[in-house]
Design a protein around this nucleic acid. Structure first.
Lengths: 211, 211
DNA sequence: TAGATTGTTAATCGATTAACAATC
DNA sequence: TAGATTGTTAATCGATTAACAATC
């Protein structure tokens, strides 16, 4: 199987959500021109994306079976086996993620949170207990969590990354706005609101200046 | 000025944060090989990125002046003039964004929130008042907000988008996991956690399967 | 059959990388 | 001067788009 580019991987959850909505509306099949119209991607790209994950060919004049597509993409994305994660930094954003109901259906199960603020220790957020950060080295391996979600301020993010890695984490979902340095064998995915906002406001200014 | 690609735009806030940290450490200059080592980008790319926003050339053997770089990038990103935004959907994520202290230094000022849940109306979150959604058509134009931040569930996101657009919003920062259909003259930037997680878990599985 | 949609193969496009001369 | 770093120009790479024959 060839490698999937980042952009391509990011499209699959969008497809999945869309297909589920169509299923709820009672549809059974979907064609790439229709998907293209609704999602703003090109037909050809959609065909390539779906071909890359599905063995069965589509049917000319009809398209593809929605139920099978949903199943295929969910399997591909790993939604059908649960992965365990811990979260470090139970501030506003951390608490929001702890309370986010949709992770479960994505196969992501956050089992514990850690924070350096003693006032938070012992509290429960979204059903998950918040532990003092000191317990991380001991607890993380026992929870068998491969993924660490980092929602601490930028200044302490690298330190937290080092800690979770030496405790055994293999993947970091980093919400702090800095570049983390990690050894080989650890993957990092950044969610950087400042970057996202930069794109939005540049596009907005571009547009407004053209008027 | 040539167009900036999305990837390129996303790098500037990363540079900026990094340069500010260096300034705090007392450094005055920075070279592209050093940036490359710390941020994981290539030297050539960094030079191109910095050249694209800065008129002054770098100095061989030294690099570029940090203070000037910070000023240049902040101006380029619009951090030095404030833009007004409203937020729709004051759930967990919405409240986290309302309480996020860093938007101010990015020139983004969220002036009001809206929610359909009457229990939230009148409450203040992060100093911002939450209004009933019905007041949006009336209030949004008076606040002169160009940007709408959408943090409602997927099922109502399109409806909210239509509402903010007809009330005058020109840019949507969309945190709902669906593709919004908008007329020309409106820009949308999506923050899709499911997409980000898809990249992370695919890379993780790839790595684990190679061991 | 005709027409819509499929999958494949080739062309285009744009971003990143490499090579190298210029300069403090 | 020597060496590090710069900016520019050309080469590479990969993703997206276009073209088109195959098929239900």
């Amino acid at each position: 199987m060839k490698a999937f580019s980042k952009n391509q991987l990011q499209r699959y959850p969008v497809y999945l959500k869309f297909f589920k909505t169509l299923l709820e509306e009672g549809k059974t099949c979907v064609s790439s021109p229709y998907i293209a119209k609704c999602l703003g991607y090109s037909e050809e790209q959609i065909r390539k994306d779906l071909q890359a994950v599905s063995k069965e060919p589509g049917v000319p004049k009809k398209g593809r079976d929605l139920e099978r597509l949903v199943e295929t993409i969910e399997k591909f994305l790993g939604y059908r086996d649960s992965t365990t994660a811990v979260l470090v930094g139970a501030g506003h954003l951390g608490q929001a993620l702890l309370s986010y109901p949709n992770f479960a259906e994505m196969g992501l199960s956050i089992v514990a949170a850690f924070d350096s603020n003693p006032a938070l220790s012992g509290r429960k957020v979204g059903d998950k207990e918040v532990f003092p950060i000191e317990k991380l080295p001991n607890l993380l391996p026992r929870l068998n969590a491969h993924i660490a979600i980092i929602t601490v301020p930028a200044a302490s993010a690298q330190e937290v990354a080092d800690a979770v890695i030496s405790a055994g984490a293999r993947a970091i979902w980093n919400f702090a706005p800095i570049h983390l340095i990690v050894p080989e064998g650890v993957v990092v995915e950044n969610v950087n609101l400042a970057s996202s906002l930069a794109v939005l406001s540049h596009r907005l200014n571009e547009m407004l200046s053209k008027e």
